[in-house]
Nucleic acid binder design. Sequence first.
DNA 1: AAAAGTCCTTGATATAAATCAAACGATTAG
DNA 2: CTAATCGTTTGATTTATATCAAGGACTTTT
Lengths: 223, 223
Amino acid sequence: MPVGLEITDMKKLDEVVATRKQVKQGQLLFGNGDAFTSLYAIRTGFFKTCISNEDGREQVTGFQMAGEIIGLDGIVTDRHSCNAVALEDAEVCIMPFANVEELSREFPVLQRHVHKIMSREIVRENGMMMMLGNMRAEERLAAFLLNLVQRLHARGFSQSEMILRMTREEIGSYLGLKLETISRTFSKLSDDGIIEVKQRYVKILAPEELRKIYNPQPCQTSI
Amino acid sequence: MPVGLEITDMKKLDEVVATRKQVKQGQLLFGNGDAFTSLYAIRTGFFKTCISNEDGREQVTGFQMAGEIIGLDGIVTDRHSCNAVALEDAEVCIMPFANVEELSREFPVLQRHVHKIMSREIVRENGMMMMLGNMRAEERLAAFLLNLVQRLHARGFSQSEMILRMTREEIGSYLGLKLETISRTFSKLSDDGIIEVKQRYVKILAPEELRKIYNPQPCQTSI
DNA sequence: AAAAGTCCTTGATATAAATCAAACGATTAG
DNA sequence: CTAATCGTTTGATTTATATCAAGGACTTTT
């Protein structure tokens, strides 16, 4: 799971911000099929993005927090292809994409910045494909927790404790697992003394152990 | 799996093309860690992109054919984070990214085009997350075959027959399955009269059946 | 404070896919 | 032409996770 310090994103994009918008917990910022007009920089709060199948299966494609940009999925077809749902009361800056493009033509630094944001998302999703295609439940959850706490730490929060904003079911959807498996894996990590879990509260007791689970040593082969 | 007619990509980007490059089957166009300088438009041939873990697990992140653009992963860190391997002798146009950005500032149409290419890749990877997180082996292979034949058809090839450029193992890596499962699933689809398979040759006999597997009807609930 | 609704945990069992193993077919090298 | 290699198929068995089921914990409503 690639990580980036997106916390400075907002600063550089301040100039293109037109207005702000409040989104209450549980509300949609945008939904599948909505016309695409703007990117959104999260100021406060926490979002999930998810897509759903014709037959109703849902896949969470990401969790986003302050300083991160959502809405990039809409550029290609001029319609959004996912739902962005606030998992807690949130505020976003609306950045009309026409403005972003206009200013990007004027300021190469902004242009490069926009390209990096999109490339970062591509690389993040490459990492997700590796997780979903190759890793076991424990590895996926370890990677998820490390990524989440790293991003929170970059925003000034603890590097070991956090309050999850999402349910076990949402974590499971993101990681390609069922909620029972998430729960069992939390319990396993807790039993092993690697984390402490109490509902939405998670404390990482042994970050090195967690990293080892995520990056297991290859088996030593003789000669 | 989202699809797009990327066949026109090259035309619009013709102006930024500096030079061409031949890549022999099995050779790397670029590799993980290489400095990022350029995007590449495939003129002829077929590529895979893949990433690998510290412990050696490999994940194929995409298969690319004529008209498609590779190298977007390198923008964010100025280094490539995946390997691009030619699965058959290929020729690419090298598009130095500095040129792409310069001309994008000059021509809004090109700027929009570049943004759409990146957004399309993000949306494609969202679809892959849905596949890897939610679908069964048969559904994944059906989606894969439909996507592949659709892209080939957009390039003037048959809409029912194709020669696969990749091994069962590479398909498996892409779809998060083992090669034996790919082989068994091919056999299953063949036994069901939906496709005809003979090594790398695949013919789709019942495209509607294949689409039904990909998009299974939700169970009819009473009332 | 009781009731209702979510969300979470844990146990028992089922299942899809992985793994292990062997043989087969196609292609390449000698 | 034969051997060797690589990719593929198929069978037997194992395993990780899903599914089904029940109860527990917290939160909100009344």
